[in-house]
Each structure stands twice: as C-alpha cells, then as structure tokens.
Design a binder for these strands. Sequence first.
DNA 1: TTAATATGTGTTATTCTGACGCAATGTAAT
DNA 2: ATTACATTGCGTCAGAATAACACATATTAA
Lengths: 251, 251
Amino acid sequence: MLQDIIENNKKYQPGLSIDCVIFGFHDNQLKVLLIKVKHSKKWSLPGGFIPVDQDIDTAAATILNHRTGVEGIFLRQFATFGKTKRNENHFDKETLEKLNIPEEKGTWFNQRFVTIGYYALVDFLQIVPDSANTHDIVEWIDHKEVPELILDHKEILEKALDCLRTELNLMPVGYTLLPEKFTIPELQKLYETILDKKLDRRNFLRKITNIGILKKLDEKKNNVAHKAPNLYSFDKDKYEEVLKNGLNQGW
Amino acid sequence: MLQDIIENNKKYQPGLSIDCVIFGFHDNQLKVLLIKVKHSKKWSLPGGFIPVDQDIDTAAATILNHRTGVEGIFLRQFATFGKTKRNENHFDKETLEKLNIPEEKGTWFNQRFVTIGYYALVDFLQIVPDSANTHDIVEWIDHKEVPELILDHKEILEKALDCLRTELNLMPVGYTLLPEKFTIPELQKLYETILDKKLDRRNFLRKITNIGILKKLDEKKNNVAHKAPNLYSFDKDKYEEVLKNGLNQGW
DNA sequence: TTAATATGTGTTATTCTGACGCAATGTAAT
DNA sequence: ATTACATTGCGTCAGAATAACACATATTAA
C-alpha cells in the first residue's frame, strides 16, 4: 500500500485520508482494533488513503475489510479532522529514510492531511487480528487501556466513542457487536461498557424488550456459573425498522 | 477568491472544499442562505476552499463570515461528502472558457472534490445578503422552496436539516436563530418549522420551560394582532450548561 | 447443607406525556 | 357598543414511562 502510494501519488486523493475506529466487545470490555506500523513506537488507528476513483464510503469499507476481513459491517462516518498541524513532523526526514521513501516523494506525505473518521461495530469473535498479512502488528485493545497514539488519533477515538454514546440513545446498538445468540445480561454489559455507568437490571430488561427488536429463544446459555440466562437474538426486520425510524422522538 | 485559487493553487488544500448550510428564521419560515455564481443558472450553497495553513473549522468560520459578516456564530460540522462523480463535469470546457480559466489551470478544479459540510444557525435580521460585495447573488430562500442546486448541494442541505432535527432532541436550539427577545409562540414556530410538524401549544410551553433555559421578561410584545404574548430571553449560562450536558440522557 | 452469586419476574411511587377545557386579551365585523 | 373570532396563558387528567426496590429461582463453591 505505502509502496503503491509512493509510486502512484496520482491514484490517490492528495491530503486526504480515512481513519477507522473499529469497536468490538469481549470479556465485558469495549475493545478497539489498533495497529502498530513497522518503525513506529506508537500505536495508531487503522487507516488508509482514498483512491481518486472511489467513493469515500467505499474507501472506508475497503480499509475496514483489509484490516478485518469482514464485509457489510456497520460503518458510520462520524467526523472529519483537519487541524493544520495534525500531521506535522509525522514523516520527517528520519522517518522517510527508515521507510526508504525518497525525499522528493516524501513531500506528498508532508502536506497537511485532513482525515475522515469512520467507526465500525464488529463481532469480536469474527475478527482474528492477522499481523502476518499486513506486516503491521494488529491487536484488540481495551478502550480503557489504549496507550499513546500517533498524531491526533486519541482525539479521533474519543470523538468516535462520544458519537457512539449519543447514537445509543437514538438507535439500537448490538446487532453487529454481539454474536447471533446472546443474553440480556450480556447486552446490558455492552451498554454499561459503552456508557461507562451501571444500569438497573430490571429496568434495562423492560426498556430493551419494549423496543421490540429482541426475539426470546427457547434456549438457555450453558456452561455458565450460576443460573443459566436465556438466549436472545435480534429480530432483524424490526431492528432495521427501528434503526431507520429512531428510538425517541423527543418532540 | 476564484482568481486567487487559479493563480495560487498551492495555497489551498487540493480536492477539498467546504460548503455551508446557513439557516435563518423569519416569517415563520426556515430560510437558507443561497448564492448564485455569475454564469451559473443554478443556485448553490455558499462554500469555499481551505487554505493549507488554516484549520478546517477556521476555514468554515471564515467562509461564513465572508458571506454573512457575522462572527462567533453557532457553526457545526455535520458530514463530509465524497462520491466520486459528485463534481464531474462541473467545470467543463465551456464553463472554464466563460470564467476565463486557462485549461491547464482548470485541471485543478476537475479533480474529484470532497466537501466538508457545516451548518450555521444565524439571526436572520442580522444578516443582510450583500450581493454587491461578492459579485454573486446572495439570497435567503425558504427551505421549502429551494430550487435545483448545483452538484449534490441539495443532498447536503437535506442532510444538514436532518442533523438539525436530531440535534433538536439532544440540545436546545434557538439562541442563535432568534433575536434576543422573543415569544414562546415564536420559539414554538421555530421548532415546528424545523421538525415540519405541529406541536401542542400547552405541552410545548411546559416542556420548554422545564428545561430551565428561559427567562420570562416583564414585558409584552406590542404591535401584534390579538392578545399580546409575553417576551422571553435565553438564560445564557443555563443554556450553555444544557448545551454541554445534553437534554435527554435516554439511558 | 449453606452461603454466595446471578437471573427472572413483579410492585409501587413518581414523573413525563398527550389530549383537551376554559378564561383572558386583543382585533375585526356588524 | 356588541358580537364573533383568533391567540395567549394557565390548568386538568388519564395513561405511559421511569426509578427504586422486593422476592423467588437456579447454580456453584465452601
């Protein structure tokens, strides 16, 4: 990819990039898929550039697919970042040398990049970080333990989480984050983790079932400590309908 | 501006622009500030390009200020648009000739442009469309009577309105759209116009006053038909507080 | 067998919402 | 002047939604 860009500047939209905040849920933790590029000490959000002949939404889906292997996943553009100094000194002389980028080609990287942020909600278990494939280290990291990131990626991540929290009040969330069959307590943990606050079990159950997007299965989760909780799945039709119409009208 | 870009490509971020949806409220109508460029039959959203040494938010504020003369106004980035063909054929050979742009310079305009959408809420009465100043025709147009627009500007406008409607449920709106003193019925009309639906007078009053952002003034509106309504103003401190914390928690 | 933990279901008081009644104020028509 | 009409201000009431909490059940660990 990098090599392609160095050799074929013209194929990519100049000064513009995409960064993806890929959320997963596992072990009651909200995880973020981060990568560490060769020669870099800091982690970063998976991102990429935009072919001039590709819609930006398509480019984002491509990047997501490239990193996770999944397709057709929930992906949402949430904000665009363009502070003048956001990528200043990122590709300095030393870095360019390390990466074997000739200096005259390096100017392409040294312009100010505006980056479009997308966040994705994926099923943790379906994604196996495949470091070998991309020559980068790819890892799921608990969002509470995200280390220092390059550039303004921490700010981008925070903003994504912020948007996700807001969206939680406007639409149902979980379909793409949980496995097909799940329990109400699991769903509640997801909500609690995203919102970073405790919710009342009984009130949560009532509210979430009232939305009408859940199907109670005639099946209990097994191999669990304590009382076996019932399994549920999403009623996809109803789910899509609510996604379209929103949850609370407000006015 | 156009001349500056033609001569100094390098000063501007290539392939990237900003478009502003400027909302105002007057005569019980939600108005949008539109412009018509010389040589164009279609109207368009006021927009501009991004100096490489300017934050995108700053660039948006500059564009807004350039068109309206106002500063420090509510301005929010809401989405970024980047379909491949969105500005295809916009600066075709004929147009370039009309605008006196040499063909080799015209290539700058013919790349795919990604545009960042901002919407602004301004006090209608404070803005006098000044066509003379910009050589373009600038006009307030009722959002229900917006004619055909260039490129995907209609889509951008729709999306802005959509976001505004959603935001209405998350935060108070009106501070920058109404004059300092206003009546509850006026505020209600604003809400009804944005949402495009009727609200119950009495329930609206209860709900809006419960938010705690209004100050009832010891003054009535005069020169009105029928019973004179009371005047209110926003309690700016409380307003800002609610803006920060949001309206409905939901969960 | 008992303690501890987590799930499933129900209750109650309070608040919020939607739908509507009615008196007060001011304009316009007769 | 009197009446009809439109608009505002304030209030009521039933039903829905919400927050806080009680109790029974299932399962494991001591």
